[in-house]
Design a binder for these strands. Structure first.
Lengths: 236, 236
DNA sequence: ACATCGTAGATTGTCGACATTCTACGGCGG
DNA sequence: CCGCCGTAGAATGTCGACAATCTACGATGT
């Protein structure tokens, strides 16, 4: 039999805690400046502090929380001045990945990507932002998996939260970026899929770069709009 | 008084363990494939498993060890195919940092950099490779500190081990890269320092990029030489 | 009023023990 | 001889307790 089941990793508490905390930060339930008290989190989840500690340490590595010895951890925001660089690094990681994915991807995996896109489309229709981001993550994560780079993939995973915090807010918010995202969430992925189907590495890289840098610009435009609004409000 | 003491962070066991383990990997005392048994490490260090666990988790985030739930952790090597991308990301991080450092660096901080270079020079003379790398790390870390980017600095720190593993081996080994490193370790940093003195951001970025990409090429050349040697040996 | 010091409460750091899971090995049946 | 199963040992996962450290607040003295 050529069919293979995907490896299902053993789940441990730490991973569940990590997923819950990360989601809370991404969706804005935990805001920058909020403190994360290990004992409270553990008590609320009905577990001991050990897995909570490990999850918080990983969030620190991902840049989502700040941590000082003996002083605990607080949720971090992403400074405007670093967004540009972060998205450029992201684009570089995705470019390398998709070039290699072009050489290796199977037809079945292409169908998997198409399925993620369909799911994303339905989620956009339903206004289920959480599901939109889940589908987007699955789409790009599949590309990383197909590419098969160990370390680049790890770095990609590691900066994923950082990349999504701001875009999540922009998508969910009422600003000008909201309509843009609703309109282009799916369509901006189509050229990527098409290039993969054609196994055209150059086109695929261009499609990915355009996609990512476009998101970056949208977020920074949202910033500028918000800043202008601030100034305007302050001037009144 | 305008003088300020640098903040001295509270030291906790985890950080010492992390430093020891990381150094052991970088210097080759722990080789790719070696297993890291928490209980053994803890016993040898005379402490409990808790701080060891946290240190190992961080090494996993840094890409130096692989970790699977319930199966423990093993030391990882850096695949040749990923070196190019890793150094390119590194160059991007350092470029952004030095541009900002150019705007912010004080004369005292420039002297601090010069001091690190002197130390590096003496270490090269003495053949103390460990000290060379310590000075190099201090030099670049100072630039990151001066630049003041929170997240980019964290990412820089996080990939530091990955970047140094291979160059450490090449420097310490007997290959052609050894002589190159002895000759250029200090001199390749001089243009960076000069550009900072002149507050010339463009020149500084170019100097940094050249420096990093040069190291990348040397390491990959060492690879090719080693691979050719392998083939030659196999053909005999 | 002001700065310093000391203490009590809160929070994180570390520890040792136990639970859960993996791995290797040997018995058992075919 | 070969494959399957169960078990024993080893390693990691989680827990609860205690130690070390920080923070806020009030006493003390000037």
């Amino acid at each position: 039999m050529s069919f293979q089941f995907p490896a299902v990793p053993a789940r441990v508490l730490r991973q569940d805690v990590l997923a819950v905390l990360r989601k809370a930060i991404l969706e804005g339930d935990l805001k920058p400046g909020d403190r994360l008290l290990e004992a409270d989190v553990a008590a609320q989840m009905g577990i001991s502090r050990a897995p909570v500690r490990e999850a918080v340490r990983q969030l620190e590595q991902e840049g989502l929380v700040d941590f000082q010895p003996h002083r605990g951890s607080t949720v971090l925001g992403v400074p405007n001045e670093e967004i540009d660089a972060i998205y450029e690094l992201r684009a570089e990681l995705e470019s390398r990945a998709i070039r290699r994915a072009c050489e290796r991807i199977t037809d079945e995996q292409i169908e998997e990507l198409a399925e993620h896109l369909h799911r994303m489309g339905r989620a956009v229709e339903a206004g289920d932002y959480s599901a939109v981001f889940e589908a987007d993550h699955a789409f790009h994560a599949t590309i990383q998996r197909v590419a098969g780079y160990r370390l680049l993939r790890r770095m990609w995973e590691s900066m994923d939260g950082l990349v999504r915090v701001r875009s999540y807010q922009a998508f969910e918010g009422e600003g000008p970026a909201n309509k843009y995202f609703r309109r282009t969430a799916v369509s901006s992925h189509v050229p990527i899929l098409a290039a993969l189907r054609a196994r055209d590495a150059d086109a695929a890289e261009k499609a990915v770069r355009d996609h990512i840098l476009e998101v970056s610009e949208r977020i920074q435009a949202e910033d500028s709009a918000a800043a202008a609004h601030e100034v305007h409000a302050a001037a009144r």
